[in-house]
Computed example of a mutant assay.
Amino acid sequence: MSEAVAGALPGACIEDSHRSTRVTWQRPGPQHGHDGSHRVDSVRVTIGASGERTSVEVSGRPKQIVAMLAAFAAAPAG
């Protein structure tokens, strides 16, 4: 699973443990403010060891989050 997701989501951070796999994918958004900081669009998915439980946390601009979720859903299952 981890390898398939890593290949489909360039730059994703994957953490495997005996109880779950956590995939965090962040993409910088446009620059805002005078300090040059960026907003970050982020999707974090935690998949239970059996593959029967999944939780998703998202943060960012709706249009970009929808595209990121679609890319995650299209990633081949392990």
Rank of each mutant, 00 (worst) to 15 (best):
M1F: 15
M1H: 13
M1R: 10
S2G: 14
S2T: 11
S2K: 11
S2Q: 11
E3W: 07
E3Y: 09
E3V: 07
E3T: 05
E3R: 13
A4D: 12
A4K: 13
A4R: 12
V5Q: 02
V5L: 12
A6P: 00
A6L: 08
G7H: 13
A8Y: 03
L9C: 03
L9Y: 02
P10Y: 04
G11K: 08
G11E: 07
A12F: 00
A12R: 02
C13A: 14
C13M: 07
I14L: 09
I14N: 04
E15V: 11
E15T: 14
D16P: 06
D16M: 07
S17P: 02
S17L: 06
S17T: 11
H18P: 12
H18N: 04
R19F: 07
R19A: 12
S20N: 14
S20I: 00
S20M: 10
T21C: 01
T21H: 00
R22C: 12
V23S: 00
V23K: 00
T24I: 03
T24F: 01
W25A: 01
W25F: 06
Q26A: 15
Q26E: 15
Q26T: 13
R27V: 10
R27N: 04
P28M: 08
P28F: 06
P28D: 11
P28T: 10
G29P: 06
P30Y: 09
P30G: 15
P30Q: 14
Q31T: 14
Q31R: 15
H32W: 14
H34P: 13
H34F: 03
D35R: 14
G36I: 02
G36E: 04
G36N: 08
G36T: 05
G36M: 04
R39Q: 10
R39P: 02
V40W: 15
S42N: 03
S42G: 02
S42R: 05
S42T: 11
S42L: 08
S42Y: 00
V43L: 11
V43W: 01
R44I: 08
R44E: 07
R44W: 00
V45P: 02
V45Y: 00
T46M: 08
T46I: 13
T46H: 05
T46Q: 09
G48F: 14
G48P: 09
G48V: 08
A49Y: 07
S50D: 13
S50M: 09
G51R: 04
E52F: 06
E52D: 14
R53Q: 13
S55K: 00
S55M: 05
S55C: 06
V56Y: 10
E57F: 05
E57P: 06
V58P: 03
V58A: 03
S59G: 12
S59E: 14
S59Y: 09
S59R: 12
G60V: 01
G60H: 03
R61C: 11
P62A: 05
K63N: 04
Q64P: 05
Q64F: 01
Q64C: 13
I65N: 01
V66P: 00
V66W: 05
V66S: 05
A67G: 03
A67F: 03
A67D: 06
M68L: 03
L69A: 03
A70Q: 09
A71N: 10
A71C: 07
F72V: 04
F72N: 02
A74W: 04
A74K: 10
P76W: 01
P76Q: 10
P76M: 05
A77E: 15
G78F: 02
G78S: 06
G78C: 05
